[in-house]
């Protein structure tokens, strides 16, 4: 199978959905002529023009608000918020409007809006361009939150997000854009809300997503040489969470480690871990372990930045502890 980057996979998904459905359009800061801060919308403007690939002013609230209004009246917008760190600027529109409109209006409208954004550390960009704020968003009923880790998942899930009649927050990772992976030429989609077992194993379950997924797989590969057989599950969607796949795995391994890049307190792992306590407690042979980001604003220094998020060695150490 051909291999393409995560960036190319996203670009293909956008291009194909815009070709397939004339109500799909993209809007955001620097997405048209420039092609997006990370190049995801490259060349779409040349192909579809100003009407359907729209550069916007630096006005995050209005970008999302316009997306909502257009979605309620027959369009299928894909808006880009350049960094997840800019989500606080438009959180009112996301949390109070996009997520709640259908429910507040008694199901009499839908908001088929995709909000693409990008997060995570790795480029030494400091505290305003490196956050992982997904936990804020999965606290909001009415949203779906998707975080792919591979090219294949990125393309299939973005297509599903665009076709979904609900608001979907689609969170990419800045360090994944250049990573290549197999993506078939032919059309496919991946359903939202389904986790993926990226590596089967029997000794311990690792639950992860986005870039930490890749770190977890690396760690699992190394641990395999030590005779420790790790099952690695890519959550892919954080809201709704695929508890069936999680439960099945924990029944088999009886141990679980959650690996996440976001800050630990009130983070994704807190929610996932508590759900496991509620639904899988009887199958657990050890306390749930979280390996998460440090509870600090992301520091600029590459040295500090690296130790502020989980590393492969941390995962190896914790797996050895829990399986010993």
């Amino acid at each position: 199978m051909r291999e393409i980057t995560y960036r190319q996979a996203l670009n293909e998904a956008l291009k194909e959905e815009m070709e397939r459905d004339s109500t799909v359009f993209s809007a955001g800061e620097d997405i048209a002529i420039y092609g997006g801060a990370y190049g995801v919308t490259a060349d779409l403007w040349k192909k579809f023009g100003d009407d359907r690939v729209k550069d916007t002013p630096i006005s995050e609230s209005a970008i999302v608000g316009i997306g909502i209004g257009a979605a309620m009246t027959g369009m299928r917008p894909v808006v880009e918020i350049m960094y997840i760190d800019f989500i606080p600027l438009c959180l009112e529109q996301i949390a109070n409007q996009a997520a709640k409109i259908r429910y507040m209006f008694g199901g009499k409208t839908k908001v088929p809006l995709t909000i693409r954004t990008e997060g995570g550390t790795g480029r030494s960009l400091g505290a305003h361009h490196s956050q992982s704020l997904e936990a804020w968003l999965l606290h909001i009923p009415g949203l779906k939150v998707v975080m792919p880790s591979t090219s294949y998942d990125a393309k299939g899930l973005l297509k599903s997000a665009i076709r979904d009649d609900n608001p979907v927050i689609f969170i990419e990772h800045k360090m994944l854009y250049n990573i290549k992976g197999p993506v078939p030429e032919e059309e496919y989609t991946i359903p939202i809300g389904i986790a993926d077992i990226k590596k089967e194993g029997k000794d311990v379950t690792i639950l992860s997503y986005s870039r930490m997924m890749l770190f977890s797989l690396e760690a699992a590969k190394i641990l395999e040489k030590d005779g420790i057989n790790v099952e690695v599950i890519d959550l892919r969607t954080l809201l709704p969470l695929d508890m069936e796949t999680i439960k099945k795995s924990i029944k088999k391994t009886n141990k679980v480690i959650i690996v996440e890049e976001d800050t630990k307190t009130g983070g994704t792992g807190a929610e996932v871990g508590m759900k496991i306590m509620e639904e899988c407690f009887d199958y657990l042979d050890a306390p749930i372990k979280r390996i998460a980001g440090a509870d600090v604003p992301m520091p600029k220094s590459p040295v500090l930045e690296k130790i502020a998020i989980p590393q492969i060695d941390d995962i190896i150490r914790e797996v050895k502890l829990i399986t010993s």
Partner: peptide, 8 residues
């Protein structure tokens, strides 16, 4: 913002 999106 919503009104502006409906206009778009």
């Amino acid at each position: 913002g919503i009104a502006t999106g409906a206009a778009l």
